Lab assay of single mutants.
Amino acid sequence: NQESVVAAVLIPINTALTVGMMTTRVVSPTGIPAEDIPRLISMQVNQVVPMGTTLMPDMVKGYAP
């Protein structure tokens, strides 16, 4: 099972992602793959992401799977 990126904290809208904001977990449905965390650093979320929420591609500005 592939791990997906999950919010480790509440991430406010338009916040640039940092390593500490993200964790990984096997979830269903799957979100952004864990191995993409290095690509996500400094990208901004386009909505509020509650802690424990799986990051989906459409939540991150400029992210393309």
Score class of each variant (00 low, 15 high):
1 N>C: 03
1 N>P: 10
2 Q>G: 15
3 E>C: 04
4 S>C: 03
4 S>F: 05
5 V>R: 00
5 V>N: 01
6 V>I: 13
7 A>D: 00
7 A>R: 00
7 A>F: 02
7 A>M: 03
7 A>V: 04
7 A>Y: 01
8 A>E: 06
8 A>F: 07
8 A>M: 12
9 V>R: 08
10 L>I: 10
11 I>C: 02
12 P>A: 14
13 I>R: 08
14 N>D: 11
15 T>L: 07
16 A>V: 08
17 L>C: 01
17 L>H: 00
17 L>Y: 01
17 L>Q: 01
18 T>N: 08
19 V>H: 11
20 G>P: 10
20 G>T: 12
21 M>K: 03
22 M>S: 01
22 M>L: 12
22 M>A: 01
23 T>S: 11
25 R>V: 05
26 V>A: 14
27 V>H: 04
27 V>N: 06
27 V>L: 06
28 S>E: 12
29 P>A: 12
30 T>A: 07
30 T>S: 15
30 T>M: 10
31 G>I: 03
31 G>K: 02
31 G>V: 06
32 I>N: 02
32 I>D: 01
32 I>G: 00
33 P>T: 08
34 A>H: 06
34 A>F: 04
35 E>M: 10
35 E>S: 13
38 P>Q: 11
38 P>V: 07
39 R>S: 09
39 R>P: 02
39 R>T: 09
39 R>L: 05
40 L>V: 06
40 L>I: 13
41 I>K: 05
42 S>W: 11
43 M>A: 14
44 Q>P: 08
45 V>L: 06
45 V>R: 00
45 V>S: 09
46 N>P: 02
47 Q>G: 05
47 Q>Y: 14
48 V>C: 03
49 V>A: 04
49 V>G: 00
49 V>M: 03
49 V>E: 00
49 V>S: 02
50 P>Q: 08
51 M>G: 13
52 G>S: 04
52 G>Y: 06
54 T>I: 08
54 T>F: 03
55 L>G: 00
56 M>A: 06
56 M>N: 08
56 M>P: 00
57 P>S: 11
57 P>N: 07
58 D>A: 11
58 D>W: 06
58 D>K: 12
58 D>P: 12
59 M>K: 02
59 M>W: 04
60 V>Y: 02
60 V>Q: 01
61 K>T: 12
61 K>M: 07
62 G>W: 06
62 G>T: 08
63 Y>N: 04
63 Y>S: 03
65 P>T: 13
